[in-house]
Amino acid sequence: MSDDDSQLTNNNGGSASGAGSVGNHTTQNSGKGDEEQQQFQFVCKIDNARILHNILSALAYKKDGQMATLSISANGLKFTVEESNSFQGNAFLQQELFQEYHFSSKHEQFKINFSLLLDCLNIYGSGASFVSLQIGYRGYGHPLLLLLEQGGATTHCGLSTLDSEQLNNFNFRGHNIVNKVIMEAPFLKEAFDELDWSSTNATITLSPNDFRLSTAGASGSCQVDYPHDSEVFESFECKSHQTNTYKLALLSPAIKALSIAQKTQMRLNEIGLLSFQHMIENEDKNISFVDFFVAPLEEDMNDNED
């Protein structure tokens, strides 16, 4: 759990997670003998740790103690954050992003302290450039190891891994996607900035004619309308009129990425589940995606066709 300079090899068993996982990892390793000899199941390298930090910070909505689930596959890394079964955010770090990417297993999934991970990635400060990063993972029950280097100074970090819980499957595509718009992120950010954040809920209306965002609070109400033919939309494909209400507390982490994204796709399926897909252009001109699902408030689920 520390971001100090303890050696990679000293950091495994002790900081490993839940009791169950520790037991498991010993049996797993018993045949292979010494801990230090054990092969890394997963190793990746990236020349610029800031790229990772930039993408992942789009998922951070708590100051500290935020947990995330990391899924490793041959295609890349996926970080998932969830809140109260109504909110999910995913960041994909496709393997092309990395200069080296080796994964010998099929699929690994575990939970880590996301806030600490971000702190580790940013250990040389946000102004530091050319921080190279290696990530290693020996397997179930082992910590996730980070090795950061800048100008000859290295930092070893070990983040203990926890058993992951079942992630929510929002099954967004399980229902017809009725409304879809693509906007330049700054325009959408401006729309959300207008909202009265002291309100609890925000209402999003998508119809063939316009896109409307509104809030109502003690001091009054606020409403922003974008006509369908406005140039802020790169594409506007809305088939039916939908009005849904969402908790602002869940919307706000989902739109945080608007400040770093280039474009955002906003979609609504027929049960009112809202999806944002933010396109982020990295410093190395690679494109990454961060997406979010936000469930509507119950009472609107039934009458969203009005």
Partner: peptide
């Protein structure tokens, strides 16, 4: 700009 319409109703 861009045809955006904003409506604020304050008490």
């Amino acid at each position: 700009k861009h045809g955006v319409k904003k409506l604020y109703k304050l008490t």
